[in-house]
Design a binder for these strands. Structure first.
Lengths: 333, 333
DNA sequence: TTGAAAGCGCTAACAA
DNA sequence: TTGTTAGCGCTTTCAA
């Protein structure tokens, strides 16, 4: 059986409230008493039962994190960032993977509610409006939460997001400045919220610069590296292909480039490529749009802890700028 | 205020023990009663307080996972695998990042003990013997645990591990079969437990095949991609360099290859490279030693749940074989 | 089949 | 400064 404060009370002869007060460094305990109690606790190798504490305190100091796939580099980076802040502030992290399943997300939210997490960071829910059942569930919990990457005017909630739209616009502008006029864009398809946003940025840049973005240069089906690989092969075999491609993200870019190398083509001579993310583990000098994931994760966690501390503060929306990282995957024409 | 079973009891007129029994599908409740109670619960949007349940049941159905860096692809893959099994069995995952800090690890273990996790998966503790303070702490908790990747004869504990030694041996043998006699090995250095094990495998293969593994071809300081990049530059500038390199892991291989490409060299003509891991997101057709992380994570989780269910079973040690994945990064000589 | 009451380990209000 | 007592929300005897 574990040691409890009752045991300590019994051994030292004090009341358990006194033991509790001593252990928690509350004022109003005679120093010697505290001293004696602390010693006894240490000697008995006492570890507080946080379950009991939490039940009484109505706070678990645990934050829940809802993620689509920890296996992906951006999500895992995010986890790391959130865990770090949480740990520094005495919170721990309950992690749940949704695997893109709506059912699992709902289940996770209920689980977190049951486990009385102090707050939830929900990453890339990709909800489209305030009517989403997932969002409803989240809001119905009465638990503070922060949305990561789901900023919609119709949703009144704390959130942190990157400025995908402008990031994509800058990428396209950069390409145009480098002399490209046949620009392509690769993404999963119209169902991808972020992909669509980035595509719109590219379109806007073309519009402003008076360049046509050809329909047939907008490629669907490329949301990850495998998709990028397929696209790369297709591109290399096209008779008229764009001179530059903006990939939805770095893995897509990586896939495209992998195929290029496999087919004996050269980057950027045969095709200029721009990515999105700025992943650490990138084997080519890829020009890319940096999404400040680490900062975003940190901010999201801080925002959540702030919200937990003060539920009545006005809603905060953090909109972080992206940054063009120019390396060597774009040719000048 | 949240609704509790007391509320349901009050509303329906039953005793709270009856409500509890109904909610938990325990026998001995009249079907109609249960029906009525369940309806009331649903109507009132009741969510059980797992904290209270856990306190009473002495089980949180939460498993703690101790990891060095979720940001790294292998660890995040592991997390995903463990979370999946946990979720399927009704457990949730409490994740902690050690950042290689011993102090943080100790703190995390205590936190997990405090939060009464049902079990712990400890990944790559890299403890060297049974005297490690971290291991002591872990064992002192009285919480079931499984070590991931820390199999030592002196440590009597459940563990799952990959056969690094034989994996490395096979890699080296393959190289030798392909006609290579000047083989190099790159790792972080003697302080790396896994690196040392792999190096030993390479040495053994050379011994068996009667080939000399030259001291100056054993490269230290390469434990990640950045290290690999530096090494790649160094290698390309060496007058006499090995014809093939076994990298500690895929990121190191990736770094080496990145430098090769950057310097206009070709893979595998200028240097054959073998990695370790078989990462999904690999931009070259890298010949590598597959470490079955997904399976290992799954097995570790299952083993832990088994241990939780039955604490008195004999200790289990799972030793999973690696597998050579032959692609195109090794030249025939 | 249902209800009353004790207990899980802790905190906190109040009394002494 | 310390002790008593009543919760926190649930499960689990045991009695009715």
């Amino acid at each position: 059986m574990r040691v409890t404060i009752d045991d300590i009370a019994r051994i030292t002869g004090y009341a358990k409230s006194t033991v509790s007060a001593s252990l928690n460094n509350k004022p109003g305990v005679k120093p010697e008493t505290r001293q004696r109690i602390l010693e006894a606790a240490a000697e008995m190798n006492y570890t507080p039962n946080e379950l009991a504490r939490s039940l009484s305190n109505r706070s678990t100091r645990t934050i829940g994190m809802l993620v689509r796939d920890v296996g992906h580099p951006f999500f895992s980076r995010l986890c790391r960032a959130v865990e770090k802040v949480a740990d520094e502030r005495g919170y721990s992290l309950l992690l749940s993977n949704s695997d893109l399943s709506e059912e699992k997300m709902l289940r996770s939210i209920r689980m977190m509610k049951s486990k009385i997490v102090s707050g939830i960071v929900a990453v890339h829910l990709e909800v489209r409006d305030a009517e989403s059942p997932i969002l409803k569930e989240l809001q119905g919990c009465g638990i503070p939460y922060v949305l990561f990457g789901d900023r919609y005017e119709t949703i009144h909630a704390d959130c942190v997001e990157a400025d995908d739209y402008n990031g994509a616009m800058q990428a396209a502008e950069y390409l145009i400045e480098q002399g490209h006029t046949d620009i392509g864009f690769a993404y999963a398809g119209p169902s991808s919220v972020y992909g669509t946003r980035r595509l719109n940025g590219v379109k806007e840049a073309c519009r402003r610069k008076g360049i046509a973005l050809r329909e047939e240069f907008i490629f669907c089906g490329a949301g990850n590296m495998a998709g990028g690989e397929k696209l790369g092969m297709k591109l290399m075999n096209m008779e008229h292909r764009p001179t530059a491609l903006i990939a939805f993200n770095d893995p897509v870019a990586m896939g495209v480039i992998k195929s290029m190398y496999a087919m004996g083509k050269r980057l950027p001579e045969d095709l200029s490529v721009i990515g999105f993310d700025n992943l650490e583990m990138m084997p080519y000098p890829l020009t890319t749009v940096d999404i400040p994931y680490d900062t975003m994760g940190k901010k999201a966690a801080e925002m959540l802890l702030e919200r937990i501390r003060n539920p009545d503060e006005p809603v905060q929306r953090l909109f972080l700028p992206t940054k063009m990282i120019i390396r060597d995957s774009v040719a000048r024409r």
